[in-house]
């Protein structure tokens, strides 16, 4: 892993000593807020100019954000942003796409099956696994409450 650092480890390294905590938070706040505002603009664009409503506009909006993030990752721009913004660029869905794209690009030398296929979910995997398990438990509890007539 030494010469092959993943995006999140780079992020962790860049975090370690340097900036004071409040400055990290400030940067995370405005970069994260800006990414969400851009998302809002894309969503408004899809609702106004295409046949999407608030419910259905979500998918194309996320797709545009994901494409943009993958492209910026490929050009090496997103990783620079991540060093500056910390959680501000990691928490939005663009950070999720960035972790997958950077893992895919970095491990390409190990081949497409073992390298790209095997490493793409190295970091995104924990998000998907814990999200799915949590959603399963929450859904079971809700169903029990509904069936029990409590909700």
């Amino acid at each position: 892993m030494a010469n092959n650092k993943s995006y999140y480890q780079q992020l962790a390294d860049s975090r370690a000593p340097k900036r004071p905590f409040w400055k990290n938070c400030l940067h995370a706040f405005w970069v994260g807020g800006l990414i969400c505002t851009i998302g809002q603009a894309i969503q408004l664009f899809f609702i106004t100019f295409f046949d999407f409503n608030e419910q259905t506009a979500g998918d194309p909006t996320l797709a545009v954000l994901i494409i943009t993030s993958v492209l910026l990752t490929s050009l090496g721009v997103y990783d620079k942003l991540a060093q500056f913004a910390g959680a501000g660029s990691a928490v939005p869905v663009t950070g999720f796409a960035n972790s997958m794209a950077s893992a895919a690009i970095e491990h390409r030398t190990e081949g497409f099956v073992l390298g790209v296929g095997g490493n793409m979910f190295k970091l995104a995997g924990s998000v998907i696994v814990f999200g799915t398990v949590a959603a399963f438990i929450v859904a079971i509890i809700r169903m029990l409450l509904v069936e029990g007539g409590i909700l």
């Binding site: 998918d59 994901i66 993958v70 893992a103 895919a104 690009i105």
Partner: peptide, 19 residues
């Protein structure tokens, strides 16, 4: 939709770009 998009575009990026 989101997961598929992320997988597909990441794969394409790995095809085109170098680390």
């Amino acid at each position: 939709a989101g997961i598929s998009a992320a997988i597909i575009f990441s794969f394409i990026a790995a095809l085109i770009f170098r680390a």
